[in-house]
Design a protein around this nucleic acid. Sequence first.
DNA 1: ATTATTCAGTTGCATATACAGTAAAAATAT
DNA 2: ATATTTTTACTGTATATGCAACTGAATAAT
Lengths: 150, 150
Amino acid sequence: MKEILREIGMIARALDSISNIEFKEFDLTKGQYLYLVRICENPGIIQEQLLELIKVDRSTATRAIQKLETNGFVEKKEDLNNKKIKKLFPTEKGKAVYPFIIRENDHSNLIALDGFSEKEAETAFSLLQRIRKNVEKDWELVKKGNKRTY
Amino acid sequence: MKEILREIGMIARALDSISNIEFKEFDLTKGQYLYLVRICENPGIIQEQLLELIKVDRSTATRAIQKLETNGFVEKKEDLNNKKIKKLFPTEKGKAVYPFIIRENDHSNLIALDGFSEKEAETAFSLLQRIRKNVEKDWELVKKGNKRTY
DNA sequence: ATTATTCAGTTGCATATACAGTAAAAATAT
DNA sequence: ATATTTTTACTGTATATGCAACTGAATAAT
């Protein structure tokens, strides 16, 4: 059995660790960049959708967004038709750090794909996308309390 | 730019989340399975090597291992020639849960690679391995305090 | 129309994570 | 041989993470 999980875990932790260190200079604490980029790219997104994009727990998302709001990176806006939801938008401060996050992420991407041909990079992306789609089904099930059988 | 990082992050978080939920029945708390499998597969490994295998901070490893030890899954043994290091071994209890961890991980692997041909799975693994090797260089640098320039 | 169910967001509590700094042993340099 | 640097493990403190349980709003079921 080819242990792709372990490779993915190692890569994810290493890259996340690097990002967290590098984003401290923008006063973003651990993990916050994940939320901020996605809010910048999807202005008006609600927490529930955001957490699905990141694959993180509801409570974790609540507090990460709360902190981002406290520190002036994003703001919550009420919806006129639905009192339940809160739409998320980046502030000017949030928009200002966005390019730095992208630049860093792009660099990590480049490093990750060092030595890859155009075609190989393309293949890696499409295979990873398929893996992600496979995995997110189970994630949603298990998070809803269902049990996997195997 | 193909955003492979985000895919990898999503996959890693989703799978880790599932594992943590599933391993609670063996009294393994968040993340502990990562350490335990590797100690089972590399009996006598020391903390410093283990953390490189997982890509986690020294202090995190210390406490994770401490907890595994407290809960009777692993034990530390002094080395006769080197007073600095502590070799890690699984206890009987640790060895007993190992197959369950493997079974779960194998299942997740299978789910992740659902719809993949033999060849595609092979390709995914080898590309991921290359990505991991690229990324771990930067990780080691940054963790040592070096700054990346880009 | 009323009741039940799902959805979206939050909070209490327990726990993991990591940076910075410490200490002691080992390896290296002089 | 001694001084310096590196290696290995650990601690203090701050912060993130997630499960379980809860709220109120929206939707579905009867």
